Amino acid sequence: MSTILYARVSTIDQNIDHQRSQAETAGFVIDEVIADHGVSGVSTKLADRPQGKRLFDRLRHGDTLVVRWVDRLGRNYQDVTDTIRHFMRQGVVVQTVINNMTFDGATTDPMQQAVRDALIAFMAATAQAQAEATKEAQRAGIEARKGDAERYRGKKPSYDRKGLVVVTDMLATGAGASAISKATGLTRQTVLRIKADQAGAEKALGKWGM
Rank of each mutant, 00 (worst) to 15 (best):
S2F: 02
S2T: 08
T3C: 00
T3K: 00
I4L: 04
R8K: 10
V9H: 06
S10N: 05
T11I: 02
N15G: 12
N15L: 10
I16Y: 07
I16E: 13
D17W: 04
H18Y: 10
R20Q: 10
S21G: 11
A23H: 03
E24V: 08
E24Y: 07
E32V: 02
E32F: 00
E32K: 10
I34S: 13
H37I: 09
H37Q: 12
G41Y: 01
G41E: 01
V42N: 09
T44Y: 06
K45C: 13
L46D: 04
L46I: 08
L46Y: 06
L46K: 05
A47I: 06
D48G: 07
Q51T: 09
G52H: 08
K53Y: 13
R54S: 09
L55Y: 03
L55M: 11
R58C: 08
L59K: 06
L59D: 02
H61V: 07
H61I: 06
D63S: 02
T64I: 07
R68G: 00
W69E: 09
V70Q: 01
R72P: 00
L73S: 01
N76P: 03
I84D: 00
I84C: 01
I84F: 00
R85V: 02
G91Q: 13
V93F: 01
V97W: 00
I98Y: 02
I98E: 11
T102R: 15
G105W: 08
G105V: 01
T107A: 15
T107G: 13
D109N: 15
Q113F: 04
Q113C: 08
A114V: 04
V115N: 06
A118H: 08
L119P: 03
I120D: 00
I120N: 00
F122G: 07
A124T: 06
A127V: 06
A129G: 10
Q130H: 12
E132I: 05
K135Y: 04
A137W: 04
A137R: 05
Q138R: 10
Q138S: 10
Q138I: 15
R139W: 09
A140K: 12
G141Q: 04
G141S: 04
E143C: 13
E143L: 15
A144E: 04
R145F: 14
K146N: 13
K146S: 13
G147I: 11
A149H: 14
Y152P: 00
G154Q: 10
K155N: 09
K155A: 14
K155I: 11
K156A: 08
K156I: 03
P157R: 05
Y159S: 10
G163P: 07
V167T: 04
V167D: 01
T173L: 11
T173V: 15
T173W: 02
A175D: 07
G176D: 15
G176A: 11
G176F: 11
S178V: 12
S178G: 09
S178Q: 15
A179F: 03
S181I: 12
K182G: 11
K182S: 12
A183I: 07
A183M: 09
T184Q: 13
T184D: 09
T187Y: 02
T187M: 03
R188A: 05
R188L: 03
V191G: 05
L192H: 07
L192R: 13
I194L: 08
K195G: 05
K195P: 02
Q198R: 15
Q198W: 06
G200E: 11
A204G: 01
L205A: 03
L205Q: 09
K207P: 02
K207G: 05
W208S: 10
G209M: 04
M210Y: 09
